[in-house]
Design a protein around this nucleic acid. Structure first.
Length: 879
RNA sequence: GGGAGUUUAGCUCAGCUGGUUCAGAGCAUCUGCCUUACAAGCAGAGGGUCGGGGGUUCGAACCCCUCAACUCCCACCA
């Protein structure tokens, strides 16, 4: 069979993913095994795969694949999030292209469009995940706005409302006067702009005195309901209890005192406009101020303003400044820089606006979520996030859960138009309830709250409702078999950006509704950045399309590339060259296979001692490394585990083991290999494939089948994770010593820089008796690390090795002096080491304070060093 | 403004309790080599005052202080 020199990833990808699906290897049902569960952080339905998803989901897939191989009942639940804001924006934009304005549609008609859109494009990202090799149980795919899941959200709202955790109140929102909608904080872009600071004087009531305030927004003067100064400000202490007259409108308002004021800024006096500034609003609540809304939703002055009605706020700003100047109340104007919020979508200046919203009280409900992270019931990985988490949880503010959108779960609150409200599931229920307060109520008059719930208010139930959406309704005692079996899940892999938005709330909901944590470990990935450290984003255009990368380097290559540069919790500076490295690795593995499969096996030949040594060595090496790899997995040090795997395969297996067992090449033909060595090699290769499988699922599956005949369901994806056996460290050490010698030989060859052809000529001419040659090779033979025994080598003038790597006889010789020098160096080193250990042991403080086992360790180090020195000295004598 | 984090070779990062197997890895670079599994390869080499300064200690990449740069989160200044 002719096998290509380079690995072709595409064929394996197209072949194995469907095969795995067909044999239901991803499927999971409750059984007697221990479960290992991950629920996917649901990507937005609107989303297309970006590098962040790529990283995230690769890590999850690695974890789940390894768990599967370790014999757990591995279950990875996929799904998508309805993402109200993002999706609604997309749908609105799409409709606009078709000439349809959202305002002209009824809620039902709009939702129909939205669902159509979701059906058409909503599955894209999940299809993309399959290309990556994600081994999700696709039969469990969920969507946060599915009927049952939505019902659970509504039930939770009602339940929390009944428990008194949900209330309705007035809050400042970011209002987009162009889009005529509230937008979330995330959709506000702050930009530094040049603006003007106007100093305006207000007259003190019943006095000739004036107070000067500084403002960037004079148009809001019409809505002022107080002037605020710092209680410690000597300039204004005498004004306690006084009132001021607002210019133009001549309203008389109090002077209030609050430490919120910055003494240094402006004049130290602040005009308070509770309707149009978030801080002023807070002050207003605190000091019980009147709220006068002078700016209409479209950004023009409202009737309440009394002046400039119907004119845009920016025009009014100029006009009022002129008018104030005319009245002699404008003291001066300064140029300053400040930050303005702009709407991400319309680029209009955001207007803070008060509106009625629903809130969830966070104080009580969040307690267990804090405790259980602090007591490590739930691990945050890396731990540095615990601090941030703690800080946030100790300062939680109530969560605004209503959104002025249509796409999402509509709030189950009902109004009778007469000021009566009730919260319940159905219109009929609401009617029955409100009827008691309002006997004349007709069911047609009943109105449901227009707003929908925040997306996070549905996704915070995700690890619960993906298994049993009805559990909220039925109570956790009546949870279905799935939920009982899979909950709590094991790992959550997500981005640190949403630690508060989502992770904290998942934990809260977990304790509130299941009385148990939703997961044990939270692995927080880094943010994928480009080489310049910029976050990868579509708007910057600096993000490669992951699917292009897969096309170019293969899914395995991209997975390896991604994880090679992703330390837990640190951002990763992604560069395509990592994928190249991943691809190269896949190719290396492919070629190791090509070598193995090309061997001619013979049961007639004896197994060489050198092969026995090599087999023993690699067995030890494999066990040694496997243990370290497993340990790194258990600490979620993914890139470390990957690098160790990489080196085990490339350096230890390919560069050393295979070179050693590779038969000699004689007369243009490779000699056959003995059966035992071949069998051992295949078995090792198989173990390595298994260890590589979580990282590189496709190539390993492909090779697993090429290397041996397999039954239909005998696939590496469900193969058993290799077990390590006892490690003979003495043999490992011996081998390391042999490697050193071989390296010395290589170095000598390097000095001459000869090509293989020249080398052959040299060999023929060379005198094998030259001293260097004997020395190096005799050592090798003695250590039996290599197959070329002294006799064999001495006997063969045409000596030479198979694939060149190990020895080349050289004209010229190694001088004994070099060896002496080397030993002398080593001696010096060991003396130094010994000295440092002795100092440590002589240090009273160390001896008194250190743990006994630590001291024991130091003593052992001391003894070892002494022995080593002795041995080296002996060696020096013999030279 | 509040909080957290980072700073170690050209790049991306390891460095557990302060000590000599600790100054490391991978990649990149440079030099040789078309070699019979693999040039997507092989062999070798060169790269670092561990951000700056100070301190504690017999001893500091590691602990303390300080300065600087960068990043993130939260709140946003009238």
């Amino acid at each position: 069979m002719e096998i290509a020199k380079t690995y072709n990833p595409k064929a394996a990808e197209d072949k194995w993913y469907p095969y795995w699906m067909q044999h239901k290897f991803f499927k999971s049902e409750p059984d007697s095994r221990e479960p290992y569960t991950i629920v996917i952080p649901p990507p937005n339905v609107t989303g297309v795969l970006h590098m962040g998803h790529m990283l995230n989901n690769t890590i999850q897939d690695v974890l789940i694949r390894r768990a599967r191989m370790l014999g757990y009942n591995a279950c990875w639940v996929p799904g998508t999030d309805h993402a109200s804001i993002a999706t609604e924006a997309k749908v609105v934009a799409l409709l606009k292209e078709q000439g349809i304005n959202k305002k002209d549609l009824t809620r039902e008609a709009f939702l129909k469009h939205a669902w159509d859109w979701k059906e058409k494009y909503g599955g894209i990202i999940l299809e993309q995940l399959k290309k990556l090799g994600a081994s999700c149980d696709w039969d469990r795919t969920r969507f946060t706005m599915e009927e049952d899941l939505s019902e659970a959200v509504i039930d939770v709202f009602i339940d929390l409302h009944n428990k008194g955790h949900i209330y309705r109140g007035v809050r400042m929102v970011n209002w987009d006067p162009a889009g005529l909608t509230a937008v979330s904080d995330e959709e506000v872009i702050y930009k530094e702009v040049n603006s003007k600071l106007y100093y305006v004087k207000y007259k003190i009531e019943n006095s000739d005195e004036w107070i000067t305030i500084a403002t960037t927004r004079p148009e809001t003067i019409l809505g002022d309901t107080a002037v605020c100064v710092h209680p410690d400000d000597e300039r204004y202490k005498h004004l306690k209890g006084k009132r001021v007259i607002i210019p133009m409108v001549n309203r008389i308002v109090p002077i209030i005192f609050d430490t919120y004021i910055d003494l240094e800024f402006g004049t130290g006096a602040l005009k308070v406009t509770p309707a149009h500034d978030i801080n002023d609003s807070n002050l207003g609540v605190k000091h019980n101020l009147e709220v006068i809304d002078t700016i209409a939703p479209d950004g023009k002055m409202s009737a309440e303003a009394k002046f400039y009605i119907g004119e845009d706020r920016f025009i009014v700003r100029k006009k009022i400044a002129a008018d104030l100047e005319e009245m002699g109340q404008l003291v001066k104007v300064e140029d300053i820089k400040n930050k303005n919020g702009y709407s991400e979508r319309t680029n209009a200046v955001i207007e803070p606006k008060l509106s009625m919203q629903w809130f969830l009280k966070m104080d009580k409900i969040s307690k267990p979520a804090l405790e259980n992270v602090l007591n490590e019931n739930i691990h945050l990985i890396p731990e540095k996030f615990i601090n941030t988490y703690k800080h946030w949880m100790e300062n939680v503010h109530d969560w605004c859960i209503s959104r002025q959108l249509w796409w999402g779960q509509q709030i189950p609150a009902w109004y009778d138009g007469k000021g009566n409200t009730t919260v319940c599931k159905t219109k009929e229920e609401a009617f029955a309830k409100l009827r008691m307060q309002n006997v004349e109520l007709r069911i047609e008059d009943l109105k449901q709250d227009e707003d929908v719930l925040d997306t996070w208010f549905s996704s915070w139930l995700w690890p619960i409702t993906v298994f049993d959406p009805k559990v909220i309704k039925n109570g956790k005692a009546n949870a279905n078999a799935d939920l009982k079996y899979y909950y709590p899940t094991n790992d959550l892999v997500t981005a640190p950006e949403i630690l508060f938005f989502w992770v904290a709330r998942l934990i809260i909901a977990g304790y509130e509704y299941m009385d148990a944590k939703p997961f044990t470990n939270v692995y927080l990935t880094g943010i994928v950045r480009d080489k310049q450290g910029r976050k990868m984003s579509k708007s910057l255009g600096n993000s490669p399309d992951p699917l292009d990368l897969i096309e170019k380097y293969g899914a395995d290559g991209v997975r390896v590339g991604m994880l090679l540069c992703s330390p837990a919790g640190n951002d990763l500076m992604f560069d395509e060259s990592y994928c190249e490295q991943g691809r190269n690795f896949a190719n290396k593995v492919w070629n190791a296979f090509r070598l193995l499969q090309g061997f001619e096996v013979s049961d007639k030949i004896e197994q060489l001692q050198a092969n026995k040594t090599a087999i023993e060595w690699f067995g030890n090496k494999l066990s040694e490394q496997l243990e370290i790899i497993n340990d790194n997995y258990s600490k979620y040090r993914m890139s470390e585990a990957l690098m160790l795997t990489y080196k085990l395969v490339w350096d230890d297996f390919c560069a050393w083991y295979l070179e050693m067992i590779k038969p000699e090449f004689v007369d243009g033909k490779s000699l056959p290999i003995d059966k035992a060595t071949y069998a051992a090699s295949i078995s090792y290769f198989e173990s390595l494939l298994k260890i590589m499988h979580p990282w590189m699922p496709f190539i390993t599956e492909e090779l697993y089948h090429l290397i041996n005949e397999r039954k239909e369901k005998d696939c590496i994806i469900v193969a058993e994770w290799p077990k390590q056996s006892a490690v003979n460290s003495k043999q490992l050490a011996e081998f390391e010593a042999s490697k050193e010698i071989v390296t010395t030989v290589r170095n000598l060859r390097q000095q001459k820089q000869i090509s293989p052809k020249e080398k052959l000529e040299l060999i023929e001419k060379s005198d094998t008796q030259n001293s260097f040659f004997d020395e190096a090779v005799i050592k090798l033979a003695n250590l039996s690390a290599l197959k070329y025994s002294k006799e064999k080598i001495e006997g063969a003038h045409s000596f030479m090795v198979k694939s060149t790597e190990f020895f080349v006889p050289l004209a010229g010789s190694i001088d004994a002096g070099a060896e002496k020098e080397r030993i002398a160096k080593e001696l010096e080193y060991n003396h130094g080491f010994l000295k440092s250990v002795q100092i440590k042991l002589a240090n009273e403080r160390f001896v008194q304070n250190a743990k006994p086992e630590l001291i024991e360790l130091e003593r052992k180090k001391q003894a070892d060093a002494e022995a080593k020195i002795k041995a080296l000295e002996e060696q020096l004598k013999t030279l």
